[in-house]
């Protein structure tokens, strides 16, 4: 079951700008990159320093959902994947982001903002893999 969604350019740009502002804030104030898979991975590593700010950032993310829901109501979240798919996807995202040192935030926003070649290659790679995966799931195997 594929949900239809409509093109929302204004909220997309505003949300994107907020993400950019957050990344700049963390860099200018703490000197840190707002790469969420890196932050989560370091928090989960057996021996790791600097847990405090990382935990605070993650709590800030979760608090955003609570605050938004309180003020504006629950945001629209449409999940088509079944439990098996969610588990497989979660494992792939978990391993892939650690192996590839980043995700949409670290490579796609922060890395590209610094004009990092590694991040450009990573972003093109995960975008292409995502597009091919959706094509296969929706138009070749599924429907």
């Amino acid at each position: 079951m594929d949900y239809a969604t409509s093109f929302t350019p204004v909220s997309a740009l505003i949300g994107g700008a907020l993400i950019g502002i957050s990344a700049l804030m963390l860099l200018a104030l703490n000197g840190r990159v707002a790469g969420i898979s890196g932050i989560a991975g370091q928090l989960l590593a057996p021996k790791s320093g600097g847990r405090g700010w990382r935990l605070a950032f993650v709590l800030g993310l979760v608090a955003a959902a609570l605050l938004y829901t309180l003020v504006a109501g629950a945001p629209q979240v449409q999940i088509a994947a079944d439990t098996t798919t969610l588990v497989i996807a979660g494992v792939l995202v978990g391993i892939g982001t650690q192996l590839g040192s980043g995700c949409t935030s670290g490579h796609g926003v922060c890395g590209l903002s610094r004009l990092s070649a590694r991040s450009l290659v990573a972003t093109i790679s995960f975008m292409a893999a995502g597009i091919v995966t959706v094509f296969l799931v929706r138009h070749v195997f599924g429907g």
Binding site: A80, T85, V93, G96, G102, I131, V132, V134
Partner: peptide
């Protein structure tokens, strides 16, 4: 790693 991540991203969104 990026490709594995992209496949997982494309599976569940």
């Amino acid at each position: 790693g990026a490709v594995l991540f992209g496949v997982g991203w494309g599976l569940a969104g």
